[in-house]
């Protein structure tokens, strides 16, 4: 080591990591859509996609091709720049947060220690919250620029909803931060070596998961795109690949909050590790993926089971129930932490 080619190799490693993570992430997102259609169908005693490939397994490919080749409709009277910008904003912000998510220990190949994450940030948790808080713009701007009443309502609703629930989301995570004393996701996971945080922060977890469902605009909080009252919500006027981008962004956000829940409350990649060197390196990644999958499945299950809230119920639930409980949780946790320290 220490030769002149060192920075070149490091750059190559980072690029390779980005490519692999992005590829895996995109594939999982595509198959999450398939999983959702299949699971919801079985909950409702239907078969779901069955024609393309065995058990409809090639359905995501067919959907993707269809989205790409559909006519790209641009309604009159739209604000063109923002109309085209909005899906890209939603898409980028949904994908930016995977940059700091660690999904395993590390592996040593040819003398290079490779961490299972794209980059490690001391304020990784805050970075994810920051990126999620920017995701609002995609939806709000899509609603506004379409220049049509249903998207506008959808956009306004979603902005109000996301601002409201962001508070509870952040505060629910403060308890974990207080316990582990760090904002670095890797350190938070290492803290849970013996005991997962779900045991120490059961209330925090429940609050987080409720706020996260609202933050990703999913049933029972999917008011921004309530089909029965708002046609399609903020993306009513979008078609073809631009609609696909919103669609992918929504599922990518589900994965992000599931990853965060796994890291913060369920011990990240911790699990039984055995076997030879290579297996030891990759088993944690498998545990991490399995935990995230459970969360994604729970998301779909909730969608198949619960009816939608009314808008005023949604707002009072966020402000009058979740937020006070989250504050109480922070208060109690900080008392306990201070009491233990003294």
């Amino acid at each position: 080591m220490g030769t002149s080619s060192e920075p070149l190799i490091l750059t190559a490693i980072i690029l390779a990591k980005v490519a692999v993570v992005l590829l895996v992430f995109l594939t999982s997102v595509a198959y999450a859509v398939w999983l959702e259609r299949k699971v919801v169908a079985h909950i409702q005693s239907r078969w779901g996609p069955y024609l393309v490939g065995p058990h409809g397994l090639l359905q995501p490919v067919a959907d993707g091709l269809k989205f790409l080749f559909k006519e790209d409709i641009e309604p009159r009277e739209v604000d063109r720049l923002i109309y085209y910008l909005a899906p890209f904003v939603a898409f980028t912000m949904a994908f930016a947060s995977i940059a700091v998510i660690p999904f395993g220990e590390s592996i040593t190949i040819l003398g290079h220690k490779i961490n299972f994450e794209i980059t490690s940030l001391n304020v990784g948790l805050l970075f994810i919250l920051a990126v999620t808080s920017l995701g609002v713009y995609g939806i709000a701007l899509a609603g506004w620029s379409s220049n049509s009443k249903f998207p506008l309502f959808g956009g306004l609703r979603s902005s109000a909803q996301m601002i409201s629930y962001e508070l509870s989301l952040g505060l629910a995570l403060v308890g974990v931060v207080l316990i582990s004393g760090s904002l670095n996701l890797r350190e938070i996971v290492d803290q849970q070596q013996g005991l997962w945080n779900i045991v120490r922060q059961p209330l925090g977890f429940l609050l987080y998961i409720s706020a996260a469902i609202a933050e990703t605009n999913r049933t029972p909080f999917d008011l921004p795109e309530a089909e029965s009252e708002l046609v399609g919500g903020f993306h009513t006027e979008y078609s073809s690949y631009k609609f696909a981008m919103f669609f992918i962004a929504e599922y990518a956000n589900i994965f992000t909050v599931s990853c965060l829940a796994t890291l913060m409350f369920f011990g990240g990649w911790h699990g039984p590790v055995f076997g030879p060197h290579l297996l030891r390196a990759f088993l944690p990644v498998l545990w991490f993926g399995l935990k995230v999958f459970c969360f994604v499945f729970a998301y779909i299950w909730i969608r198949g089971t619960l009816p939608r809230f009314r808008y005023d119920q949604l707002m009072s639930f966020g402000w009058k129930f979740l937020l006070p409980l989250a504050l109480a949780n922070v208060l109690i946790t900080s008392f306990v932490v201070a009491w233990r320290a003294s």
Binding site: S133, A140, E166
Partner: peptide, 11 residues
Amino acid sequence: YAGAIMVLFVL
């Protein structure tokens, strides 16, 4: 700033 205050402005 970007995630809360400016969202208020846009809203």
